[in-house]
Amino acid sequence: MASSSAVGTQAQAAAASTSIVDLSDLVVKEKCHCLNDSPGKPFGNVFIGDERLVCESEDDEQLLMTFEFREAVRLHSINVVAPANDHGPKTIKLFVNKQSIDFADCNDLPASQLLVLGPDDVAADRVCKLKMQNFTYVNLLSVFVEDNHGADVSQISSIKFFGSPLPSTNMKDFKKAG
C-alpha cells in the first residue's frame, strides 16, 4: 500500500518542516458538515478532542465529512483518530475543493488521495503524509470513509490537519500612506 509508507509519527512530520502547524484553528466548524452521521453520535464530536466521543455513521459504514478552511492552506499530513477495533475506518478517500459532493460523486470522481489505514494507524500520535502536489491550495477538504474493518457502522473520534496556511494579505499590516 502506498499509504503505509506515508504513515509516520507526528514527531517525524514536525521535524520535516518547521513551518508545518496544526491547522485546527483554521477550520470553520460552522461550515463543516457531514453526511450519514448518526443523530446520537453526531459530527460535532470530531471537534471536541475526547477519544470517547465519536462520530458514528447511521445507515451503513460510509461517512462523508466536509471541512472548510477559513483561508487556503497547503496540507502536509492528516491525523485520524478512531477506536482500534472493527469500527475504525479502513479506506478513506480525500477530495479537494469539491463544493457539493455526495456519496454518488465519491464513487465516480477520482480521489486526490486514497488512504488505507490499519487498526494501528488510527492512534492519536500517528499521521498520514499526503501527496503535497495534490494539496497545495485547499479551501475545502472532503473526507470519505468508504469502509471499515468489518463493523456495521464506522466511528471516528477526531481528524486533525497539519500543513501551512498560504500567505494571505493581512490588512492590519497595511500602514496608511501619507
Partner: peptide
C-alpha cells in the same frame, strides 16, 4: 428513501 436518509 434510504438514499435520501444517507444524504441527510
Amino acid at each position: 428513501g434510504k438514499m435520501l436518509k444517507k444524504n441527510n
